[in-house]
Design a protein around this nucleic acid. Structure first.
Length: 670
RNA sequence: GCCGCUUUAGCUCAGCCGGUAGAGCACCGCAUUCGUAAUGCGGGGGUCAGGUGUUCGAGUCACCUAAGCGGCACCA
């Protein structure tokens, strides 16, 4: 074996160096500037420490802040370690557990010292200071390889029970060895970590991070385990990036649907009906427009709309399986006349139970079962704007995004096995059109596979999962362009789920649409059709939704558009505002003309300055304002102002009406 | 459901070491008729989330309950 190896640099040049040369050595040999700037090495595409000896011919690239993605990942990971070191310095007895990088920073989970409660936001400034001191000390970060036994014993000796547990359970390395890597910060603090890390803490910018919040988090993400105390931070390569991020957060907060919902008078929530929405007149216009739009899309796509009971007997839910697998999320009610006669309990102990529907699917099967269905009836597409109630964990409720009463744009397609691929493909096409119409959203597709808690045989799951893969393949969406991935364990209890994740205007993703291949429910509820062979067969049931729920989808739309709805959805599409009261009559004529053209119009005849009117209706996010004064009244014109853009133009009334009417036409009617 | 924080006028928020509640906006009234993001003056409005306790005295301290917020877990 030669003592020399060949390294190929990114520019294609090659260097013969001694075996065991490190990335740092190469950087130093190229120049002092690079030696200082280098953060890590990439050996054959794998990110490793700068101090890691290179043992064979390889492609070598040196990572600097210019390689932003890698540099950020390294920095955030290091910030997490610095956080842990700082916390242990400040609060002796705190156990460290786990601390990865995140999309915008990092977190670390701690088990606070006995007698000390979880960390609070008041602790953060002191922790930040301690972190800055560690960065300023420029402590070298040194990798060492320890045996599993050696490390476990060290953790136990230090009272790091969580680390010891984890070290014991980590899978052996690919080569079968039991070695684990640790990193020293200076020579007084160490953590178990796969790495890689920066050469020293001084490579971090002490002004480029901010601890943002604290929260509880379960050890290893499991509700049955201990609650740990998590500290979150956001971290960047420099202060400018950090400030830009903090500004983005502020901008995101401004489009929060709860804030805009109140300011724009769209809806409200209150304690007495927490988790259920009070839609105000303005908000309900959006809801109705959206519902009307969906019907115009569903009808020609061959769906038949139905309406099914809100409450059904528990026996029905037992048969569908919901009583067994979903009851903790259901509102159950006694099937009994409440006692009003005396002081006794309102409901007796032997009341029979009914339940509010958490899903529409069983009722749809019950409709399907009425009469005898032939193979000629399939595929049978049933739709319902189904109002469902789910008793969600209280901590999960969140504005319109997570509520206890919501309406799904639900639908179930009963079909033969050989129709699944075509039906899923048709659904994908429909969904494409809807997401494009409603905001030009892009989306990713995921396949959620069988969960632990489920019905049906493994063979059934094998079959239904594979049929969904085949269907997506047929649509050409099973690739990275569509964010395609499979999510083990995340399916519904009765079926694997194709999930459609929208990306909104500021890059956040929301799971809304879904289609699921279910063979369990038709079986449990005994749905069948008569085939060409004259025998009874089980149909497959595709559960599908495009918006998911109206409530959540409108919440997403509010945030996506920051309140500036496209004109066809806007609660008030045009405001006629006067400059002087002499124009009041003319303003009335203008408003009538718009109203007759089908525009939702309001007038603002208040004795206020036009400045105030522009400001207030801008804050209400009306798309158009038609300003009229003496001049317009005499000439039969309007000053049409786009409140969002701010530009305005004087034009004849008829022209303004035509312009607004065109803009107010729903996308499917253009 | 779990951890932390919060809850004062319609909204946003101030209120110190416990001594009997305040601002801006909104609302109402009056004046102002004004050309594209806040006209001026005046007025009304609060069992300080609910409950229990400590205290001569609680918005303020303690405990319980509820809801909200940020996460965790769960999820359309």
């Amino acid at each position: 074996m030669s003592d020399l190896i060949t390294l190929t640099l990114p520019d294609g040049s090659q260097r013969e160096v001694a075996r065991g040369t490190t990335g740092a050595d190469v950087a130093a040999s190229i120049g002092p500037g690079l030696a200082k700037a280098a953060l890590a090495a990439k050996v054959d595409g794998e990110l490793v420490d700068l101090s890691r000896p290179i043992e064979a011919d390889a492609a070598l690239a040196l990572v600097t802040v210019r390689d932003e993605a890698d540099a950020l990942e390294l920095a955030r990971h290091d910030f997490a370690h610095v956080l842990a070191e700082a916390v242990q310095g400040l609060f002796p007895g705190t156990q460290i557990t786990f601390g990865p990088s995140t999309d915008d920073g990092f977190y670390y989970d701690f088990a606070p010292a006995p007698g000390r409660g979880p960390f609070t936001e008041d602790d953060l400034p002191a922790i930040e200071e301690a972190m800055r001191a560690i960065i300023k000390a420029d402590k070298p970060l040194r990798r060492e390889v320890w045996s599993r036994a050696q490390l476990i014993s060290r953790w136990k000796q230090q009272g790091e029970n969580f680390k010891a547990e984890w070290a014991a359970e980590l899978a052996p390395n690919d080569d079968g060895s039991e070695d684990l890597t640790v990193y020293w910060s200076g020579d007084d603090w160490l953590d178990m970590c796969r790495g890689p890390h920066l050469p020293s803490t001084g490579k971090l910018d002490p002004q480029a991070f901010k601890l943002t919040r604290v929260s509880g988090a379960y050890w290893r993400g499991d509700q049955k385990n201990a609650m740990l105390s998590r500290v979150y931070g956001t971290a960047w390569l420099n202060k400018k990036q950090l400030d830009a991020h903090l500004l983005r957060l502020e901008e995101a907060a401004k489009r929060d649907h709860r804030k805009l919902g109140r300011e724009m008078d769209l809806f409200h929530l209150q304690e007495e009906a927490h988790g259920s929405v009070f839609w105000h007149p303005r908000g309900f216009i959006i809801y109705r427009e959206l519902e009307a739009y969906m019907r115009r899309r569903l009808d020609p796509a061959g769906y038949q709309e139905v309406k099914t009971p809100q409450i059904m007997d528990a026996r029905q839910w037992e048969q569908s399986g919901h009583w067994g697998k979903y009851r903790e999320n259901m509102f159950v009610i006694p099937d009994e006349v409440p006692n009003t006669e005396d002081e006794g309990p309102v409901v007796s102990n032997d009341a029979q139970w009914m339940a509010l529907k958490p899903m529409n699917c069983p009722a749809h099967v019950l409709i399907f079962r009425q009469g005898i269905k032939s193979y000629r009836d399939l595929p049978l597409r049933m739709a319902e704007m189904g109002c469902c109630h789910r008793n969600e964990p209280h901590g999960a409720l969140h504005g319109l995004m997570r509520v206890r009463q919501f309406t799904q744009d639900d639908g179930h397609i009963f079909c033969r096995q050989d129709q699944i691929v075509a039906e899923i493909a048709a659904f994908c096409d429909l969904l494409d059109v809807v997401y494009k119409d409603l905001g030009g959203f892009s989306y990713a597709i995921k396949l959620a596979l069988r969960p632990e808690k489920r019905f049906g045989s493994d063979a059934m799951w094998d079959w239904s999962e594979q049929s969904m893969r085949d269907a997506v393949k047929a649509t050409g969406r099973d690739n990275a362009d569509w964010g395609w991935e499979e999510l083990p364990g995340e399916g519904a209890f009765y079926a694997p789920k194709l999930e459609f994740h929208l990306t909104d205007a500021i890059g956040r993703t929301w799971q809304v649409g879904t289609i699921q291949t279910d063979t369990v429910l038709p079986e449990r509820l005994d749905a069948s059709y008569v085939g060409e062979d004259g025998n009874r067969h089980r149909p497959v049931m595709l559960h599908r939704a495009i918006l998911g729920s109206y409530e959540r989808f409108i919440g997403i739309l509010i945030e996506h558009f920051a309140g500036w709805f496209p004109t066809w959805l806007a609660p008030c599409q045009a405001v006629v505002a006067t400059i002087v009261s002499d124009a009041d009559d003319y303003a009335g004529t203008v408003a009538d003309t718009l109203r007759k053209a089908g525009i939702r119009v309001e007038t603002d005849l208040r004795n206020e300055k036009i400045n105030l009117k522009v400001r207030e209706h801008s804050l209400q996010k009306a798309p158009y304002m038609l300003v009229v004064g003496r001049r317009e009244a005499e000439e039969g014109t309007v000053a049409l102002r786009s409140l969002k853009g701010g530009e305005q133009k004087v034009m004849p009334l008829a022209e303004a009406v035509a312009l607004i009417k065109a803009d107010a036409t729903p996308p499917d009617l253009r």
